[in-house]
């Protein structure tokens, strides 16, 4: 099943990817709605990393840039800040995605955790959020949560894309 999916080109699954990005943005918006906590990882970046690791014929940097701009609008941060963060993380993923693809899911999750730690670190440097003690713990717990979230997401996206493309 996975072999069939991985041999696909981005153009064959364009709509699947687009729909998944819209869903991810909606989920991020729901996560931000009301009294949100900084423990929830950015799902748009999660989805982006998944497609970047599985569709090797494109760099996905354009998608990273556009999604970053939309994230800037959503989080009310300076325009281009999240675009830069997303581009950096995607670039790092591109550099070792061939090896990443070959890893078992738990090992992939470990690398995703490192990426999220880098994302949170850069986020902290860029935006310098004022965190109280509770927020501080939650903020730095986010990478650990992504460790558990990645296998779930990878499985769901694989299933979804397989159903959508192959019927």
């Amino acid at each position: 099943m996975s072999h069939k999916l991985f041999n696909l080109k981005t153009s064959q699954a364009r709509w699947v990817i687009l729909v998944s990005y819209i869903v991810a943005l909606a989920l991020d918006t729901i996560a931000l709605f009301g009294h949100s906590t900084p423990v929830i990882p950015p799902l748009t970046l999660f989805f982006l990393l998944y497609w970047c690791a599985n569709f090797l014929d494109r760099t996905h940097l354009f998608s990273a840039f556009i999604l970053g701009l939309l994230a800037d609008t959503l989080y009310q941060t300076p325009l281009g800040a999240h675009a830069l963060l997303f581009s950096i993380i995607t670039f790092l993923m591109i550099r070792h995605r061939l090896r990443f693809k070959g890893y078992p899911v738990w090992q992939q999750a470990f690398f995703i955790c490192l990426y999220m730690l880098l994302y949170q670190g850069l986020n902290f440097l860029f935006f310098n959020p004022i965190l109280n003690s509770d927020d501080f713990v939650q903020y730095w717990t986010m990478p650990a949560l992504s460790l558990f979230l990645w296998p779930l997401l990878a499985y769901s996206l694989r299933k979804f894309s397989h159903t959508a493309v192959n019927g």
């Binding site: 940097l61 840039f65 970053g68 325009l79 281009g80 800040a81 675009a83 830069l84 581009s87 670039f91």
Partner: peptide
């Protein structure tokens, strides 16, 4: 190259 363009554009936008 694409990364350099994205990087520069993001900095300029910011």
């Amino acid at each position: 190259m694409q990364f350099v363009i994205a990087f520069t554009l993001a900095i300029a936008l910011m």
